[in-house]
Design a binder for these strands. Structure first.
Lengths: 107, 107
DNA sequence: ATACATCATCGTAATATTGCAATATTAAAT
DNA sequence: ATTTAATATTGCAATATTACGATGATGTAT
């Protein structure tokens, strides 16, 4: 039906899936990497850098924001997007935990 | 247009995104966890266990297979699905690497 | 005040994903 | 040979995602 049956899964499974979904697009990975590379917070040229239209970038930024990864503060007309380190480490742990709990028992 | 512009991103970005996409559904996380929990490889009851229709489960298994995570061998009519440990660790490293390379420089 | 620059939102088209019923395939069991 | 059981494939409907042009809001510069 095109809609995930989230109610039959655990909160943890749904949460990790939601995070993975944000990472499931190369543009969003590129955005995260670019922001991380920048010395300051002038993320103005994200559009030129990535090569997607401004509304598209804005949409992607919004997806990243939804899982609490971005903090945005206005500096005049410019928006300063920063990665929320605490949240970032939280996500890292979630993934790591998942990977560690999966192991081979057969074959 | 509903289609990702994969050509403007690096191979690495596209690859990680593709892997994340597989993890971006709770059913697929649940499948991986269930297979991992099983002592043997009798994955027959995946359908009952997860609560989705058999074609749907089959479809999800196929997505997981596409990134090389599942090895399936037939044991008569039953299919034995196992996690490819080597590939699993490869994916784990890819994620870890990505997480480690993102860091805060501002704010 | 007017023009410009930056970013968000709306609307929309193209495509992808999710889910299942129906059906096919394959192998064991009778 | 038929039946049964397990899995795959096909076809389709509902919904989600991706992308962008047009437009709006907000702040800066002239």
């Amino acid at each position: 039906m095109g809609v995930s049956k989230t109610h039959i899964f655990s909160t943890h499974q749904n949460e990790l899936a939601a995070i993975a979904k944000v990472m499931a697009h190369p543009a969003r990975l590129a955005i995260l990497q670019y922001i991380s590379k920048q010395e300051g917070c002038i993320c103005t040229d994200l559009v030129d850098e990535i090569g997607l239209a401004q509304p598209t970038i804005s949409q992607h930024l919004n997806e990243i924001k939804k899982i609490g990864l971005l903090e945005g503060t206005f500096e005049g007309k410019n928006l300063c997007y920063c990665i929320d380190t605490e949240r970032w480490e939280e996500l890292q742990s979630l993934f790591q935990e998942f990977f560690l709990n999966i192991h081979q028992n057969c074959c």
